[in-house]
Design a protein around this nucleic acid. Structure first.
Length: 266
DNA sequence: AAGAAGCGCAACCGCGATTCA
DNA sequence: ATGAATCGCGGTTGCGCTTCT
């Protein structure tokens, strides 16, 4: 029953890879392609376990890897994606061509955490450090960050949240794209347009809930847990779909019904 | 100059999900 | 249907290099 053992661990090397091992691995994968990590070490003449070969290839030897420092744009994208996805490094890496999950994870722990802390932002929650836990939750806004100036942003925040406190506005205006809680709402402007449309057509406000999974493109999937009583079919309205796409777009994830799982690098 | 401390990163470990005999 | 092997991921460790005292 089951499969045969993946490798004989007693006869495998550990620790840093030698140049010769790297060359053997590269040569083998160039000739035969990736995959079947179990049989690869033996076939390539390497005294390593398949798992170690896979890691070495993915994190260090792959030809499409972009070495060198992260750009400011990459920094900000990582922060945005982390605020949305948490420690899903493989998904974050999927949005950064040439970067690996391991590299991003290391970079986060060594650089970005400190960067956020110096901004007064908790790197885990993406909220201001001095913010008390009892303060009310605010929503992420998929704004593009292209505000003319901070005053514009303040006005938008006031319009969106009404009674929001001044210090919250300051912290949001300082880092306009950072969400303070892992909750998603549609883009501000689009939200306003939709509200106006709904108000004009029905004469009353009606704001449908959109669950997190739906915003990630898992509409109608088993992961979607929200309910829309108007159609009894979860987040299936076309309105929500367009909002989802807009939300993706703001994060550079523009797509038509993309499942978030496809963001992984395969 | 030398030891300590801090930092960055490659590699390992353990676990959950998936695959397959 | 079952259970062991494989895959892939996130967390952690260890080591070499740099900076500080």
């Amino acid at each position: 029953m089951g499969r045969s053992p993946c490798c004989e661990k007693s006869h495998t090397n550990k620790g840093a890879w030698t140049k010769e091992e790297d060359e053997r691995l590269i040569a083998y994968i160039k000739a035969h392609g990736e995959g079947c990590w179990r049989s690869l070490p033996k076939a390539a003449g390497l005294l390593r376990c398949g798992k170690s070969c896979r890691l070495r290839w993915i994190n260090y030897l792959r030809p499409d890897l972009k070495r060198g420092n992260f750009t400011d744009e990459e920094d900000e994208l990582i922060i945005k994606l982390h605020s949305l996805l948490g420690n899903k490094w493989s998904l974050i890496a999927g949005r950064l061509p040439g970067r690996t999950d391991n590299e991003i994870k290391n970079y986060w722990n060594t650089h970005i955490r400190r960067k956020l802390l110096s901004r007064g932002i908790d790197p885990t929650t993406h909220r201001a450090i001095n913010e008390s836990s009892t303060q009310r939750v605010t929503s992420i806004s998929f704004t593009t960050g292209n505000y003319k100036d901070i005053e514009d942003e303040k006005m938008n925040i006031k319009a969106e949240f009404g009674t929001i406190k001044e210090d919250e506005i300051s912290s949001r205006a300082q880092c306009p794209d950072l969400n303070l809680e892992l909750r998603i709402s549609p883009p501000y402007q689009q939200n306003q347009q939709k509200r106006a449309l709904e108000q004009s057509s029905t004469g009353s406000w009606r704001i449908s809930p959109i669950c997190f999974k739906c915003n990630l493109g898992l509409k109608k999937s088993k992961d979607c847990s929200c309910s829309d009583s108007s159609n009894g079919n979860g987040c299936s309205s076309s309105r929500n779909t367009s909002m989802n796409i807009a939300a993706y777009d703001c994060l550079g994830l523009k797509t038509n019904g993309l499942d978030y799982r496809t963001l992984e690098t395969k």
